[in-house]
Amino acid sequence: MQWWEKTVEYFFIKKYVADHLVAPLDGKHELAGDAILSDYQQKWIIIEFKARAESLDTEKKKFRSYADAYMALEKYDHHHYLIYGEILNGEFDLVAKTYFSRREQKDIKKILEYGKDIDSFLKYLNFFIKLKSEKGTSSSGNLGSYAFIAGVNNNNEITTCMSLQEFGLKHELNLESTPKEEKQKEITRERQRDRDGPSLGF
C-alpha cells in the first residue's frame, strides 16, 4: 500500500477532527458565537504529519543545531507530535511520537490530553521557531506552512484547527526563523564580499 503525507493528514482530520469543529448548526451565524471557545478555554497541540516512520528524521535538518534544540525542548514536547502512517493489524492507521523525545503513542486520542494552555503554548512555539533554520523550508512557504495547530476542549475533542501560519498571524508570531535585521546584515556582507573579490583567508 502506498501513501503520502497528505494521506496521513486527511486520515487524521477525517477521523479525529471533522465531527467536533465548532460551527453553527442551522447556518445562522449569530448562533455560532455562543459555541466558539476562546483561546484560553482550550488546550493547544502542534502536529507535523509525515508519511512513514523513516521520514521523521528529516525534521532534524530544519534546525541550525538539532542537538541544541533537543537539549532545550525534549523535556517540554508532550504537546508536540509527529504523526505518520503505518500498517497495524493489516490496516492503515496512525502512530504519533513526541517531536523531540520520540515517545510513541499508538492511541492517537491520547495525544489530545496533553495540550498546553495558550500562554505556555506560545512560549514554547516562540522558542521552537527561533531554533529553526530556513534551510528546511521551501521557496513556496515559510515555517508556518507545514504544521497543524489544534485547540482541544475539556472533553479532549479538537474544536479549532489551523495552520501554524494562520495561528501565527492571529497571535503576531514572527515565523521567520532568522530575524530580518540579521538577514539584512548577511545580505550586506555577501554584497561586500562580491565587491572585494574572493577572500584569501586572512
Rank of each mutant, 00 (worst) to 15 (best):
A72Y: 08
D77C: 05
L88Y: 07
E86W: 01
A72V: 02
K75W: 03
H78L: 09
L82N: 10
R52Q: 08
F49D: 06
E86G: 00
E54Y: 12
A53C: 09
E59G: 06
F49N: 06
Y81Q: 02
A69N: 03
F49L: 08
A51T: 10
R52Y: 11
S65K: 05
S55Y: 13
K61L: 11
A69S: 07
S65E: 08
A72S: 09
K50C: 10
K50L: 10
E74M: 09
L88G: 02
K50S: 12
R64E: 14
D77P: 04
L73D: 03
A53P: 06
K62L: 00
I83Y: 12
Y76N: 11
G85P: 04
H78E: 13
L73A: 01
S55T: 10
K61I: 05
F63R: 01
K50F: 13
D57P: 00
A69M: 04
R64Q: 12
R52M: 04
I83T: 13
A67L: 12
Y84E: 07
Y81R: 00
F49T: 08
A69Q: 02
K75Q: 09
Y70C: 07
E54R: 06
K60T: 14
K50Q: 12
F49G: 06
I83N: 10
Y70Q: 10
A67D: 15
H78I: 08
K50A: 09
K60S: 10
I83L: 14
Y76F: 13
A72G: 00
Y70H: 15
Y84Q: 05
D68M: 05
E74P: 01
H80L: 00
K50P: 11
N89K: 00
Y81M: 01
S55P: 02
S65Q: 03
R52S: 05
L56M: 12
Y84N: 05
N89A: 00
A51Y: 08
A53R: 13
T58Y: 14
A53Q: 14
K60V: 13
D77Q: 06
L56R: 07
I87D: 01
E86S: 05
L56H: 06
I83M: 13
Y84P: 07
H78S: 12
I83G: 10
D68K: 09
D68R: 06
H78C: 07
E74F: 15
L82E: 09
L82S: 09
T58W: 11
D57E: 11
A51H: 08
K60M: 14
Y66I: 04
E54D: 13
K62V: 03
Y81P: 04
Y66D: 05
D68T: 13
H79T: 05
D68H: 09
F49E: 07
I83A: 10
L73W: 03
L88F: 09
A69D: 02
Y66E: 04
D68Y: 11
E59T: 14
L73T: 01
I83R: 09
I87H: 01
D68C: 01
G85E: 03
L56Y: 06
A51C: 09
Y81F: 15
K61T: 10
Y70E: 14
R52G: 00
F49R: 06
E54I: 07
K50G: 11
E74S: 15
K60I: 13
L82M: 14
D57F: 07
G85A: 01
S65I: 03
E59L: 15
E74Y: 15
